[in-house]
């Protein structure tokens, strides 16, 4: 019988020596400094820290919305620096789902149409898209709100639609930027419960930025950022 060790799967997110500096006029403002980080597939990680500590910048780098000044960002085995704008767009469409603090739903589209949006970038047929949309809305418990537009829904419901939109393409990684920041306690709990389902039942990798310690408690691991430095 062989006792060879099974190799550990490569991390879903790997940051090595990542720093980010913004230039405001002639002044250079360092936002992140020498961040090294690895997030395993299926992990649920939260980042906390005061405003201006670099949390959102870190999320932008991980999701390919921004480029580091130095260092390597590798997600799902791809070094994001090697991708051009178009490839990055395609990569995000295939691998990343977003949940924003203010939900960022398109107000003139219904819940179903909002959820369907990322599927327009896939080769799925209209009927297949509808099936995926129905399934995603079912996961977040909003099958009865299919035809409602965002202004007709509560904040909690809108955020659940946003979560449905984030998972409808079955991405490897879900990025959540203050997902409960604009919700009351009850709605926030419902959203966090949903994150629990995504993590435990659907085995998604979740990276969340939050100010809320209660929300952070739901994560497996919590990182603190202080003035751009990972504690």
């Amino acid at each position: 019988m062989s006792l060879e060790a099974v190799p550990a799967p490569p991390p879903m997110v790997r940051l090595e020596g990542v720093s980010k500096t913004y230039r405001r006029g002639t002044v250079e403002v360092p936002v992140l400094e020498a961040v090294d980080l690895a997030i395993d597939p299926g992990a649920f990680v939260a980042f906390m820290g005061p405003s201006g500590s670099g949390k959102s910048t870190l999320l932008n780098l991980i999701s390919g919305l921004d480029q580091p000044t130095t260092g390597i960002v590798e997600v799902a085995g791809r070094n994001l620096a090697e991708l051009n704008d178009r490839e990055l767009s395609d990569w995000r469409a295939a691998h990343v789902g977003f949940v924003f603090q203010l939900y960022n739903l398109i107000p003139v589209l219904t819940a179903a149409e909002n959820v369907e949006l990322p599927l327009l970038l896939t080769p799925l047929s209209r009927a297949e898209r509808r099936k995926h949309v129905a399934a995603a809305l079912d996961v977040v418990g909003l099958s009865h709100r299919v035809g409602h537009r965002p202004p007709q829904m509560s904040g909690g419901e809108q955020q659940r639609v946003a979560i449905a939109r984030a998972i409808v393409t079955d991405p490897d990684l879900i990025i959540a930027d203050e997902p409960t920041g604009d919700l009351d306690r009850k709605a926030a709990e419902a959203v966090l419960d949903l994150f629990g389902v995504l993590h435990h039942d659907l085995h998604k990798t979740l990276v969340m930025v939050t100010h809320d310690p209660h929300a952070a408690e739901r994560a497996e691991r919590v990182h603190h950022l202080e003035k751009g430095v990972l504690q």
Binding site: D85, S89, R92, F100, N104, L117, P118, L121
Partner: peptide, 10 residues
């Protein structure tokens, strides 16, 4: 910006 974050090309 949301569309583009989702992967819509410029």
């Amino acid at each position: 910006a949301t569309l583009r974050a989702m992967g819509f090309r410029p």
